[in-house]
């Protein structure tokens, strides 16, 4: 039972971690909580759904290669979703950079309402069901039952996170992001185009959120327009748990949150699942005020 709960928690935690990275990336460069990020994740899931629905139109030879098709859908949806992130920043945040601290929060919430209702109107209020693209075989090893899709989710979230680490730490663009995150003013003096870097950060976050959206859509099979609300809150919690602004922290926070929920729901009552998560979060913050991996002293509000 314990290992089964652990595995369940890691699966869902992978999704949380991917979304949490988006919060953390944006927070890193702008010191701002992007409250519309949950909706970006939802849009990503819908983009995946739209693309997957196009698959039957492809030649059968291409369709036969299921993994390739899924990979293509994932990539395309994520790239398209990155555009949403780009425009979100451009419309809702860019003109508000010097404004009072809470102003962008409101425009983010406005955008989030807009996107949610936009999807409801265009895609309908009913749940959308992903076509069964993969036969989801279940395997049993000792006391643990796991499915093929669980393996796909866990491995792809790990690959994506590794990719992000490489991007942030090894590439020129990543270095620029870190520079802007440390000191935007200095970065601009060194010739870094801060606006462009902020756009890139939003796009990277949206890319990952869309990946999470598509994977979760395929895994659970149904999506609806209210998906972003719970996903957003959970991932935000995960990001803070790990120490917001810190990428490793977001990953750790995501997995941890998933495991706490699975164990709490499994061994105690499901009804109080979210309460356990928040209690642990509060406990962690009381002892480590900047999250598990956050800088000492925390960020100034």
């Amino acid at each position: 039972m314990f290992f089964q709960h652990l595995l369940n928690g890691i699966t869902i935690g992978g999704g949380y971690a991917l979304i949490a990275l988006g919060y953390t990336l944006v927070y890193g460069v702008l010191k701002l909580i992007n409250f519309a990020h949950g909706e970006i994740y939802m849009i990503g899931a819908y983009l995946g759904f739209i693309l997957i629905s196009l698959v039957p139109a492809l030649p059968p030879a291409v369709q036969a290669n299921t993994m390739l098709v899924i990979l293509a859908v994932l990539l395309l949806a994520a790239l398209l979703c990155a555009l949403y992130g780009y425009y979100l920043e451009k419309i809702c945040y860019r003109s508000l950079r010097g404004a009072p601290k809470l102003t962008p929060l409101i425009s983010a919430l406005g955008a989030s309402l807009f996107l949610q209702n936009f999807v409801m109107i265009t895609m309908g209020a009913r749940d959308r069901v992903f076509p069964p693209v993969i036969t989801n075989t279940a395997y049993t090893v000792g006391p643990v039952t796991f499915t093929f899709l669980q393996v796909v989710i866990i491995s792809s979230s790990i690959i994506l996170m590794a990719g992000l680490s490489w991007f942030i730490n090894q590439t020129r663009l990543g270095t620029a992001i870190r520079a802007v995150s440390t000191d935007p003013y200095m970065a601009s003096l060194l010739g870094i185009n801060v606006d462009a870097i902020i756009s890139v950060t939003f796009m990277a976050g949206s890319f990952l959120a869309a990946c999470a959206g598509v994977l979760i859509g395929i895994y659970y099979g149904s999506i609806n327009f209210t998906l972003g609300y719970l996903g957003g809150i959970k991932a935000f919690t995960a990001a803070v748990l790990g120490g917001i602004g810190n990428c490793t922290g977001a990953m750790l926070g995501g997995f941890l949150l998933g495991v706490i929920e699975a164990l709490g729901g499994g061994y105690f009552s499901t009804e109080y699942k979210d309460v356990y998560a928040f209690f642990i979060l509060i406990a962690v913050l009381v002892f480590r005020p900047a999250g598990l991996l956050g800088k000492k002293g925390g960020e100034r509000a």
């Binding site: 927070y27 909580i33 809150i233 935000f236 919690t237 803070v240 917001i244 009552s269 009804e271 109080y272 979210d274 309460v275 928040f278 209690f279 979060l281 509060i282 913050l285 009381v286 005020p289 900047a290 999250g291 002293g297 925390g298 960020e299 100034r300 509000a301």
Partner: peptide, 28 residues
């Protein structure tokens, strides 16, 4: 008393947690 020793956004999420905890308890 414990939460106000936190800064900015960390404090924000603790209050978020409080709001949710109250609601979940009321519901259960």
């Amino acid at each position: 008393a414990p939460a106000l020793r936190l800064k900015g956004d960390y404090l924000a999420i603790v209050t978020l947690g409080f709001g949710e905890i109250v609601r979940i308890f009321a519901n259960n």
